[in-house]
């Protein structure tokens, strides 16, 4: 945190707050650093989260000096394409809010429409209430929140869940922080038809798509976590794969990459299974070769846009 954020010098030492000490005490810097370290790219998101954390830290200091009493609105919306790290960031957000004392437990409850909306009359309210109760003291993450609202069906029970959500978002701000997530354009439409949500959400965070280079770094990190590595030619092949995959439908950023890597591992296993040679070394077991990636349908059928998504590759 830059020094410019400390309050103007005051002569009364009791009216001074040491933001650095506050940072250390809450260990929020540590979470931010972890966010920086573990998440590739996402520069605007990180900047936004840093801003929010700074605001909350300063709010905390202000509160300590008796400047402000009301809990700030913390509900957020995360918009972006699939696989851009919305859930991961939400988890970190829960931790940041917990460290700063804005939520008491700091757990994340991740739900979609199915968890909130019931199948028949009278089913929705208890279901939504159950989820809200579970999320209290933490963060409620609603993925693809726009599905809650179905204007084409006027008897849809989603509206009931929306009303309960809005009520809790307004009245129990101390108990629960709601994060709505989904595609940017559909979220926009959702907010336009539910102005109540827009006004209750303080922070809109937009998640950009990953660049090819970032996806490659992510792939390597993923593999590292599973004790695999790419050989040099495989790395080139994967770079080509990423470029080709992006032009195809149902591209889901990091998720597509994870699925591609899963299939590459499968091919690697089959390769060793078919041709065990004279035993495998540790190196063989760890390395993914170019052939494991080049066999992908994405590359062999390059140029042909396949409207059918590859199995397990749905966005």
């Amino acid at each position: 945190m830059p020094d410019t954020m400390t309050p103007p010098p005051s002569h009364d030492p009791a009216l001074r707050v040491d933001l650095q000490a506050e940072m250390r005490e809450t260990q929020v810097g540590e979470v931010l650093a972890q966010l920086d370290r573990e998440l590739v790219g996402l520069a605007p998101v990180k900047a936004r989260i840093r801003q929010i954390a700074a605001l909350l830290l300063v709010d905390r200091a202000r509160k300590r000096l008796g400047l402000q009493a009301e809990t700030p609105t913390l509900h957020m919306s995360f918009t972006g394409n699939p696989g851009t790290g919305k859930t991961t960031v939400a988890k970190r957000m829960a931790e940041i809010l917990h460290r700063l004392g804005y939520v008491r437990r700091g757990h994340l409850v991740s739900v979609t429409r199915d968890d909130l909306v019931g199948q028949y009359i009278g089913h929705t309210a208890p279901k939504t209430k159950e989820i809200l109760k579970r999320a209290m003291g933490g963060v409620l993450f609603i993925d693809e929140a726009y599905y809650l609202y179905r204007p084409e069906n006027e008897r849809d029970y989603g509206q009931e869940a929306i009303e309960m959500l809005l009520q809790v978002m307004e009245n129990q701000r101390d108990d629960l922080v709601v994060i709505l997530a989904g595609y940017a354009d559909r979220m926009d439409k959702f907010f336009r038809s539910n102005p109540g949500f827009r006004s209750r959400i303080a922070h809109h965070v937009d998640f950009p798509d990953y660049s090819d280079g970032e996806l490659l770094v992510i792939a390597e990190k993923m593999l590292e976590g599973q004790n695999y590595r790419l050989s040099e030619p495989a790395k080139e092949a994967l770079a080509a794969y990423i470029g080709a995959r992006r032009t195809q439908p149902h591209f889901a950023n990091a998720r597509s990459i994870r699925n591609a890597l899963d299939r590459a591992r499968l091919r690697q296993a089959v390769r060793h299974f078919e041709d065990p040679g004279d035993g495998l070394t540790l190196d063989d077991l760890m390395t993914i070769e170019a052939s494991d990636i080049l066999a992908s349908r994405v590359l062999t059928q390059e140029g042909r846009l396949d409207p059918q998504p590859t199995a397990g590759d749905t966005p």
């Binding site: 008491r104 437990r105 109760k133 579970r134 209290m136 003291g137 933490g138 101390d174 108990d175």
Partner: peptide
């Protein structure tokens, strides 16, 4: 019974 609540706020609401 509230089996999966993490915070007393849920019970206090009820």
């Amino acid at each position: 019974p509230m089996f999966d609540t993490r915070d007393a706020a849920a019970v206090m609401t009820e």
